[in-house]
Protein backbone atom coordinates (compact mmCIF):
# COMPACT_ATOMS: atom_id res chain seq x y z
CA UNK A 1 0.00 0.00 0.00
CA UNK A 2 2.74 2.42 1.01
CA UNK A 3 6.30 2.23 -0.15
CA UNK A 4 8.82 4.77 1.15
CA UNK A 5 12.21 4.70 -0.52
CA UNK A 6 15.21 6.65 0.70
CA UNK A 7 13.07 9.61 1.81
CA UNK A 8 14.89 12.75 2.92
CA UNK A 9 13.34 16.00 4.09
CA UNK A 10 14.34 19.28 5.66
CA UNK A 11 12.79 22.28 7.33
CA UNK A 12 14.38 25.74 7.32
CA UNK A 13 17.56 24.25 5.89
CA UNK A 14 17.83 21.68 8.64
CA UNK A 15 17.92 18.08 7.49
CA UNK A 16 15.49 15.98 9.53
CA UNK A 17 14.91 12.81 7.51
CA UNK A 18 17.98 11.07 6.13
CA UNK A 19 16.84 8.26 3.88
CA UNK A 20 13.81 6.48 5.28
CA UNK A 21 12.82 3.11 3.84
CA UNK A 22 9.53 1.57 4.83
CA UNK A 23 7.02 -0.85 3.29
CA UNK A 24 3.48 -0.98 4.65
CA UNK A 25 0.93 -3.50 3.39
CA UNK A 26 -2.83 -3.50 3.81
CA UNK A 27 -3.90 -5.02 7.12
CA UNK A 28 -0.67 -4.14 8.90
CA UNK A 29 -0.01 -1.94 11.89
CA UNK A 30 3.43 -0.36 12.06
CA UNK A 31 4.77 1.46 15.08
CA UNK A 32 7.42 4.14 14.62
CA UNK A 33 9.32 4.80 17.82
CA UNK A 34 12.39 6.76 18.68
CA UNK A 35 13.87 9.36 21.00
CA UNK A 36 12.88 13.04 20.92
CA UNK A 37 14.00 14.82 17.79
CA UNK A 38 14.57 11.66 15.80
CA UNK A 39 12.15 12.74 13.03
CA UNK A 40 9.03 10.73 13.92
CA UNK A 41 6.57 13.61 13.64
CA UNK A 42 8.36 14.96 10.58
CA UNK A 43 7.76 11.65 8.82
CA UNK A 44 4.06 11.83 9.72
CA UNK A 45 3.88 15.45 8.51
CA UNK A 46 5.65 14.74 5.23
CA UNK A 47 3.27 11.86 4.50
CA UNK A 48 0.27 14.11 5.16
CA UNK A 49 1.69 16.88 2.98
CA UNK A 50 2.56 19.60 5.43
CA UNK A 51 4.10 22.32 3.29
CA UNK A 52 6.76 23.64 5.68
CA UNK A 53 8.76 20.49 5.05
CA UNK A 54 10.76 20.22 1.89
CA UNK A 55 11.37 16.77 0.48
CA UNK A 56 14.98 16.68 -0.68
CA UNK A 57 15.18 13.14 -1.94
CA UNK A 58 13.58 9.74 -2.29
CA UNK A 59 10.07 8.71 -3.23
CA UNK A 60 6.79 7.66 -1.69
CA UNK A 61 4.41 5.45 -3.57
CA UNK A 62 0.87 5.08 -2.23
CA UNK A 63 -1.56 2.73 -3.98
CA UNK A 64 0.43 3.08 -7.17
CA UNK A 65 0.46 6.89 -7.04
CA UNK A 66 3.31 9.29 -6.33
CA UNK A 67 2.08 10.54 -2.96
CA UNK A 68 4.48 13.49 -2.84
CA UNK A 69 2.87 15.02 -5.93
CA UNK A 70 -0.56 15.21 -4.33
CA UNK A 71 -1.91 18.22 -2.40
CA UNK A 72 -2.75 17.56 1.26
CA UNK A 73 -6.50 17.49 0.53
CA UNK A 74 -5.99 15.17 -2.45
CA UNK A 75 -4.07 12.77 -0.21
CA UNK A 76 -6.92 12.82 2.28
CA UNK A 77 -9.48 12.16 -0.44
CA UNK A 78 -7.32 9.26 -1.61
CA UNK A 79 -7.58 7.77 1.88
CA UNK A 80 -4.60 9.09 3.85
CA UNK A 81 -5.46 10.31 7.34
CA UNK A 82 -3.25 12.06 9.88
CA UNK A 83 -4.33 12.18 13.51
CA UNK A 84 -2.59 15.32 14.74
CA UNK A 85 -0.33 15.42 17.75
CA UNK A 86 -1.74 18.89 18.47
CA UNK A 87 -5.21 19.13 16.92
CA UNK A 88 -5.95 22.69 15.84
CA UNK A 89 -8.66 24.74 17.54
CA UNK A 90 -10.86 26.54 15.03
CA UNK A 91 -13.36 28.87 16.70
CA UNK A 92 -16.57 29.32 14.74
CA UNK A 93 -16.44 26.02 12.83
CA UNK A 94 -18.45 23.23 14.44
CA UNK A 95 -17.10 19.70 14.18
CA UNK A 96 -20.40 18.58 12.66
CA UNK A 97 -20.39 21.13 9.84
CA UNK A 98 -16.73 20.56 9.20
CA UNK A 99 -17.15 16.78 9.06
CA UNK A 100 -20.19 17.02 6.81
CA UNK A 101 -18.17 19.09 4.35
CA UNK A 102 -15.19 16.74 4.56
CA UNK A 103 -17.22 13.54 4.21
CA UNK A 104 -19.12 14.90 1.22
CA UNK A 105 -16.00 16.15 -0.56
CA UNK A 106 -14.41 12.73 -0.05
CA UNK A 107 -17.58 11.03 -1.30
CA UNK A 108 -17.67 13.28 -4.33
CA UNK A 109 -14.09 12.27 -5.10
CA UNK A 110 -15.11 8.62 -4.89
CA UNK A 111 -18.02 9.26 -7.24
CA UNK A 112 -20.62 8.84 -4.49
CA UNK A 113 -23.64 11.07 -3.91
CA UNK A 114 -23.41 13.48 -1.01
CA UNK A 115 -25.05 12.33 2.21
CA UNK A 116 -28.25 14.13 3.11
CA UNK A 117 -28.67 15.49 6.64
CA UNK A 118 -30.45 12.40 7.93
CA UNK A 119 -27.95 9.86 6.60
CA UNK A 120 -25.07 11.99 7.79
CA UNK A 121 -26.51 12.17 11.29
CA UNK A 122 -27.02 8.40 11.26
CA UNK A 123 -23.42 7.80 10.24
CA UNK A 124 -22.22 10.24 12.85
CA UNK A 125 -24.19 8.58 15.65
CA UNK A 126 -22.74 5.21 14.71
CA UNK A 127 -19.15 6.50 14.72
CA UNK A 128 -19.61 8.53 17.89
CA UNK A 129 -20.14 5.29 19.78
CA UNK A 130 -16.74 3.99 18.69
CA UNK A 131 -14.84 6.67 20.54
CA UNK A 132 -17.49 7.36 23.19
CA UNK A 133 -17.74 11.00 22.18
CA UNK A 134 -20.79 13.06 23.05
CA UNK A 135 -22.77 14.92 20.42
CA UNK A 136 -22.75 18.10 22.49
CA UNK A 137 -18.99 18.19 21.98
CA UNK A 138 -19.40 17.89 18.23
CA UNK A 139 -21.88 20.76 18.12
CA UNK A 140 -19.24 23.02 19.58
CA UNK A 141 -16.49 24.86 17.74
CA UNK A 142 -13.83 22.48 16.48
CA UNK A 143 -11.55 21.51 19.39
CA UNK A 144 -12.09 24.89 21.04
CA UNK A 145 -11.69 24.50 24.79
CA UNK A 146 -11.56 20.70 24.47
CA UNK A 147 -9.45 18.78 26.97
CA UNK A 148 -6.45 16.86 25.67
CA UNK A 149 -8.44 13.62 25.77
CA UNK A 150 -11.42 15.16 23.99
CA UNK A 151 -9.21 16.44 21.20
CA UNK A 152 -7.65 13.03 20.64
CA UNK A 153 -11.02 11.31 20.71
CA UNK A 154 -12.22 13.84 18.16
CA UNK A 155 -9.29 12.89 15.94
CA UNK A 156 -10.25 9.22 16.06
CA UNK A 157 -13.90 10.12 15.53
CA UNK A 158 -12.87 11.95 12.35
CA UNK A 159 -10.83 8.93 11.31
CA UNK A 160 -13.89 6.74 11.79
CA UNK A 161 -16.01 9.11 9.70
CA UNK A 162 -13.54 9.29 6.82
CA UNK A 163 -12.68 5.57 6.76
CA UNK A 164 -9.09 6.03 5.58
CA UNK A 165 -7.01 3.34 3.91
CA UNK A 166 -3.85 4.58 5.57
CA UNK A 167 -4.07 6.21 9.00
CA UNK A 168 -1.08 7.87 10.62
CA UNK A 169 -1.47 8.46 14.34
CA UNK A 170 1.04 11.08 15.46
CA UNK A 171 1.69 10.75 19.21
CA UNK A 172 -1.99 10.12 19.77
CA UNK A 173 -1.15 8.93 23.29
CA UNK A 174 0.50 12.17 24.39
CA UNK A 175 -1.45 13.98 27.07
CA UNK A 176 -3.86 11.12 27.68
CA UNK A 177 -4.59 9.50 31.03
CA UNK A 178 -4.94 5.74 31.08
CA UNK A 179 -8.75 5.72 30.73
CA UNK A 180 -8.70 8.09 27.77
CA UNK A 181 -5.87 6.07 26.25
CA UNK A 182 -7.94 2.89 26.43
CA UNK A 183 -10.94 4.57 24.83
CA UNK A 184 -8.86 5.99 22.00
CA UNK A 185 -6.99 2.70 21.43
CA UNK A 186 -10.24 0.79 21.53
CA UNK A 187 -11.65 3.10 18.84
CA UNK A 188 -8.60 2.54 16.64
CA UNK A 189 -8.78 -1.24 17.09
CA UNK A 190 -12.40 -1.28 15.94
CA UNK A 191 -11.29 0.48 12.77
CA UNK A 192 -8.54 -2.05 12.01
CA UNK A 193 -9.26 -4.28 9.07
CA UNK A 194 -7.47 -6.31 6.46
CA UNK A 195 -8.07 -3.53 3.97
CA UNK A 196 -6.43 -0.67 5.81
CA UNK A 197 -3.10 0.04 7.38
CA UNK A 198 -2.11 2.08 10.40
CA UNK A 199 1.16 3.80 11.27
CA UNK A 200 1.40 4.58 14.98
CA UNK A 201 4.01 7.20 15.84
CA UNK A 202 4.76 7.11 19.52
CA UNK A 203 7.41 7.87 22.06
CA UNK A 204 6.31 5.31 24.60
CA UNK A 205 5.47 1.67 24.49
CA UNK A 206 2.34 2.25 26.61
CA UNK A 207 -0.01 2.81 23.66
CA UNK A 208 1.26 -0.37 22.01
CA UNK A 209 -0.18 -2.43 24.86
CA UNK A 210 -3.55 -1.47 23.47
CA UNK A 211 -2.86 -1.04 19.77
CA UNK A 212 -0.70 -4.08 19.17
CA UNK A 213 1.60 -3.54 16.18
CA UNK A 214 2.78 -6.09 13.66
CA UNK A 215 6.07 -4.26 13.20
CA UNK A 216 8.09 -1.82 15.28
CA UNK A 217 10.66 0.52 13.76
CA UNK A 218 13.10 2.68 15.63
CA UNK A 219 13.91 6.03 14.12
CA UNK A 220 17.12 7.79 15.08
CA UNK A 221 18.68 10.85 13.43
CA UNK A 222 16.23 10.63 10.57
CA UNK A 223 16.82 6.98 9.71
CA UNK A 224 15.19 3.69 10.63
CA UNK A 225 17.99 2.01 12.57
CA UNK A 226 16.20 -1.06 13.82
CA UNK A 227 13.04 -2.97 12.93
CA UNK A 228 11.37 -5.87 14.64
CA UNK A 229 8.15 -7.30 15.97
CA UNK A 230 6.07 -6.05 18.87
CA UNK A 231 8.67 -7.39 21.33
CA UNK A 232 11.10 -4.68 20.18
CA UNK A 233 8.85 -2.10 21.81
CA UNK A 234 9.01 -3.95 25.11
CA UNK A 235 12.77 -4.13 24.87
CA UNK A 236 12.94 -0.38 24.28
CA UNK A 237 10.67 0.23 27.25
CA UNK A 238 12.95 -1.85 29.46
CA UNK A 239 16.31 -0.63 28.18
CA UNK A 240 15.65 2.91 26.93
CA UNK A 241 17.01 4.29 23.67
CA UNK A 242 20.70 4.54 24.59
CA UNK A 243 21.67 1.10 23.35
CA UNK A 244 20.03 1.84 20.01
CA UNK A 245 21.94 5.11 19.80
CA UNK A 246 25.30 3.46 20.47
CA UNK A 247 24.50 0.66 18.03
CA UNK A 248 23.62 3.21 15.39
CA UNK A 249 26.74 5.27 16.01
CA UNK A 250 28.90 2.17 15.52
CA UNK A 251 27.25 1.42 12.19
Amino acid sequence: MLSIKNLSAQIDGKQILNGINLEVKAGEVHAIMGPNGSGKSTLASVLAGREEFEVTGGEVEYLGKNLLELEPDERAREGVFLAFQYPVEIPGVSTINFMKTAVNQVREHRGQDPLDAVSFLGLMKEKMKLVEIDQSLLNRSLNEGFSGGEKKRNEIFQMAMLEPKLAILDETDSGLDIDALKIVANGVNKLRSKNNAIIVVTHYQRLLNYIVPDFVHVLYKGKIVKSGGKELALELEAKGYDWIKSEAEVV
Binding site: A48, G49, R50, E51, E71, P72, D73, R75, A76, R77, F81, L82, F84, P87, V88, I90, P91, G92, V93, F98, M99, T101, A102, Q105, V106, H109, S141, Q158, L162
Partner: peptide, 27 residues
Protein backbone atom coordinates in the same frame (compact mmCIF):
# COMPACT_ATOMS: atom_id res chain seq x y z
CA UNK B 1 -4.14 30.81 9.90
CA UNK B 2 -2.27 28.33 7.69
CA UNK B 3 -2.22 25.69 10.40
CA UNK B 4 -6.02 25.73 10.51
CA UNK B 5 -6.20 25.55 6.72
CA UNK B 6 -3.84 22.56 6.71
CA UNK B 7 -5.93 20.82 9.36
CA UNK B 8 -9.09 21.20 7.27
CA UNK B 9 -7.32 20.12 4.08
CA UNK B 10 -5.89 17.06 5.84
CA UNK B 11 -9.52 15.90 6.13
CA UNK B 12 -10.08 16.12 2.40
CA UNK B 13 -11.52 19.62 2.21
CA UNK B 14 -10.21 21.53 -0.78
CA UNK B 15 -8.17 24.68 -0.34
CA UNK B 16 -10.88 27.10 -1.44
CA UNK B 17 -13.45 25.65 0.95
CA UNK B 18 -10.95 25.47 3.80
CA UNK B 19 -10.08 29.12 3.33
CA UNK B 20 -13.75 30.13 3.23
CA UNK B 21 -14.41 28.08 6.35
CA UNK B 22 -11.69 29.77 8.37
CA UNK B 23 -12.71 33.25 7.20
CA UNK B 24 -16.39 32.65 7.73
CA UNK B 25 -15.65 31.35 11.21
CA UNK B 26 -13.76 34.57 11.91
CA UNK B 27 -16.70 36.66 10.72
Amino acid sequence: DEEAIFYLRSRGINHETARAMVLYAFA
